[in-house]
């Protein structure tokens, strides 16, 4: 949990955006979704667009031995999608490779 009260707060930030989807909250959201049966998939939203997501997904697929893809979303930008529950793996990998700091990662789900 970060100290939200100390974050700089721009009162006009959402006025200019006009909606409450402050997509760039600087966090990397790692979520899990259930598919049919026991299958799940993991999504990683909010990785900086400076990174080549395609390269990242290639590395992840190899590292976690799972399939994965990059999805271009109009609102959330490029989102990483991996098969299975890779939340632990991706957290460790992102931290280890220095792509995100541990306090930037927000893991959702059960």
């Amino acid at each position: 949990m970060s100290i939200q009260n100390l974050n700089t707060f721009d009162p006009f930030a959402d006025a200019s955006k006009g909606s409450e989807d402050d997509v760039q909250d600087g966090l990397v959201h790692i979520r899990i979704q259930q598919r049919n049966g026991r299958k799940t998939l993991t999504t990683v939203q909010g990785l900086s667009s400076d990174y080549d997501l395609k390269k990242i997904v290639r590395a992840c697929k190899k590292e976690f031995a799972c399939n994965g893809t990059v999805i271009e979303h109009p609102e959330y930008g490029e989102v990483l999608q991996l098969q299975g529950d890779q939340r632990e793996n991706i957290c460790q990998w992102l931290t280890k490779s220095g792509l995100a700091k541990p306090d930037q990662l927000k893991v959702h789900g059960f």
């Binding site: 009260n5 989807d21 959201h29 598919r35 049919n36 999504t43 939203q45 999805i71």
Partner: peptide, 15 residues
């Protein structure tokens, strides 16, 4: 009194 994170479901993959 402090603000709390807003609830966002964010990106939802097609399942």
């Amino acid at each position: 009194r402090c603000s709390v994170a807003s609830i966002k479901s964010g990106f939802q993959a097609v399942t």
